[in-house]
Amino acid sequence: MKKSILGYLSVLCLLMLLFNPGLALEGARQGILLWGNVVLPTLLPFMICSGVIVALNAIHILTGPFKPVLSKVLQLSDQGSFCLMSGLLCGYPMGAKTTSEFMDSGRIPGEEGQYLLAISNHPSPMFVLGYVLAQIRVIPGIAASCPIWAVAAALYLPVLPISILARKCYHYKKNPYPIPDNTESANQPFSFDDHMMGCFETMVKIGGYIMLFSILALYLTVFPFAMPPLLRPALLGAVEITTGIQAIAHSVPGMSGAMLIIGSAAFGGLSGIFQTKSVLKNAGLSIRHYMLWKLIHSALSIILFYVLAMR
């Protein structure tokens, strides 16, 4: 059944590309420009540096200052704390990628990996402050009532209630005895060239998904059928967050537009979900669970932003 549905969708997409190749070319161009100008220069250096930190067993240096919150409040091990921090600092899909790699190498147990997948994948602070906030302030009448702290709090504070739900869902309890770093990968010599080529491969995958979903988002903008006023921009935000957030900012006025932008950024879009799926090498991590957690996170972010912005 899944193969049949994907087959029909593939044929439909091919027909769309054939009937309007100019639109497909423009969507591909926008996706590649987004990848080359924003995603590649912001994500790749973090990806390379994080791999070097892991290879040099320097995780404790990075996570040490934040240990009271990461260890006591979120109940994470040192290795798990690094997964969360990589997701917070680097953005989609770095948190999921690090979690999957740490599970494969035996650095974290399966229960902690499932728990981390629920809380470790987020838009990076650079993307939030440099793009999301700027697009919200494009909306007339919103700039004065939208401080930086409200946007950041709405996107990142839901990690706390979700962490409680995820720990109960996966029956996760922090191991009081850290896992010794004697895994097979830890004992192998580190090759910087191999690591960098692996990062390049991941970035090419991410670029491919961004290009494809940018094309889809552009087709949605010219979809000929009538839709409710908020449905088209909401769909754009759910498909690809960068293109979608820009469309929302220029088409949905007032608080409704700001809330849609916050929800889109928290969810990450279908493009972000496919990017995350591409880096999940471990069978113990479920993309369906991940999607559910992102929907919950998006809903909590919208509610929290509304409460903070209306004060």
Rank of each mutant, 00 (worst) to 15 (best):
G237E: 01
K2Y: 10
A166E: 00
H171E: 13
L62P: 07
K168W: 11
V11F: 10
I215A: 02
T202H: 10
A24T: 09
H297F: 04
K3P: 10
S81A: 05
A266P: 06
P45L: 05
M103G: 10
F213G: 08
A152S: 13
S286F: 04
N57P: 08
L62K: 07
F127I: 01
R107C: 09
I215E: 06
Y156S: 06
L15P: 08
H195Q: 06
S71G: 10
G31I: 01
F82Y: 10
S286R: 04
L216D: 09
I261G: 02
C169T: 14
K173T: 14
L70F: 02
F192C: 11
G237D: 00
P233W: 00
Y115C: 04
N182L: 14
E111S: 12
L235E: 03
I59G: 15
F46V: 05
S100C: 01
I61L: 15
L157Y: 03
F200R: 08
I302D: 00
S301L: 01
S4V: 15
G106N: 03
Y170F: 15
S10N: 07
H250V: 08
Q75V: 11
L292R: 13
I273W: 07
L270D: 02
A144Q: 10
L17T: 13
Y290S: 06
Y92P: 04
P21A: 02
E201A: 13
L157C: 07
F190S: 05
F305G: 02
T221N: 09
K97Q: 10
G272A: 03
A143N: 08
Q188V: 12
I303Y: 05
P93I: 02
M255V: 11
D78S: 12
L230D: 08
H289V: 10
A166N: 06
P45F: 03
S86A: 15
G110E: 14
I210H: 06
H195F: 01
A166L: 03
S298T: 02
P123Y: 10
L304M: 05
S145N: 12
A186W: 06
G106R: 04
F66A: 14
M203Q: 05
F46K: 06
L15Y: 11
N187K: 14
M255E: 13
D193A: 13
I210R: 06
A247C: 08
L43W: 01
P140F: 02
I215W: 04
G36M: 13
T202Q: 13
M310A: 15
M16T: 08
L34Y: 12
K294A: 04
S264Y: 00
I215R: 06
L88K: 05
S100G: 05
